[in-house]
Amino acid sequence: MKRKNTNKYVSFALVIAAYAIMMILTASGKITRSMQGMLVPICAYIVMAISLNLTVGILGELSLGHAGFMSMGAFTGTCAALMMTESVPDEGLRLGISMVIGAIFGGIAGFLIGIPVLRLKGDYLAIVTLAFGEIIKSIFNNLYVGFDKYGLNFQLLSEKGIKLEEGGRMLIQGAMGISKIKKISTFTAGFILIILTLFIVYHLVESRYGRAIMAIRDNRIAAESVGVDVTKYKMTAFVISAALAGAAGTLFAMNYSTITANKFDFNTSILILVLVVLGGLGNITGSIISATLLTILPEALRGFATYRMLVYAIVLIVVMLFTNASGTKMLISNIKAKLGGNKEEEEQ
């Protein structure tokens, strides 16, 4: 119990300190353009990593379709924001409402996919989530949505059937995705989303729900035998994870002027899984650090020009080996013990 608490404070302290440093650097103009441009995507990836960690690390089910929920949130949230352009003039509020809508739709997708998926285990579950991600991609690649004063207009495969009144606009145009998005995501919004995510996830993990979820992970039969409702707890963790991914998707999409379904493909799902594995399964602080580093890394390697992605892959392998080596693990646990010790001394 004690260790977990330390980890939690480290997570919050890390995020708040990083936010404060970045704000100071931005205000004093010391930050490079390239860094500034990456702040919001980093926030989105951190939330993605934490939420997937909930499924993979804490619930113990391998999900390969996490980008599908991100996509769901990105498209629904962005549509909502575009529809509210006039009715909600305040950008911060509009972004907030859009993220909530993105989270709701992400959660609904999580619930629907959870019904068949959570009956499965291990490899089977991984493959089905993988298929789910591809289905979401296909749907958004063929979906046409228009919007005018009478409301929404849906059409599959072609936009021919959509007749818009004057002043209406196309929201989703199949493979072209959403164009001309007004960028309203900010670093501060990303920061708030991370804090909320941390709050929700830690709260869940430390509650009765969390203990039940981890009991299912460690031994499903034993948990069931003492009366833990496996389906209910699994579903709870899965839906929360999907909803957070939906909110992160909205934040991510609203940072660019255009978004396509192909962005959220299998590769993105794997990238997020890499973030989680690199940070350590079940280790939230680790997810935050790895999401930040792995988003910055490809940009930091631009100096290598053509060899950039090769170097990136090598660095990834080295880091994986290094963090998994027993020597490093010892070092980390030593540091943790020291930190914990210091705290206790302070408390006395």
Binding site: R33, S34, G37, Y256, K263, P298, E299, R302
Partner: peptide, 20 residues
């Protein structure tokens, strides 16, 4: 010339790197 791998997100990163 900076690489964007035909991806909007990476293109924005590349554009920012060029501004730097």
């Amino acid at each position: 010339y900076e690489d964007d791998a035909h991806d909007a997100e990476k293109a924005v990163n590349a554009f920012n790197a060029l501004l730097d």
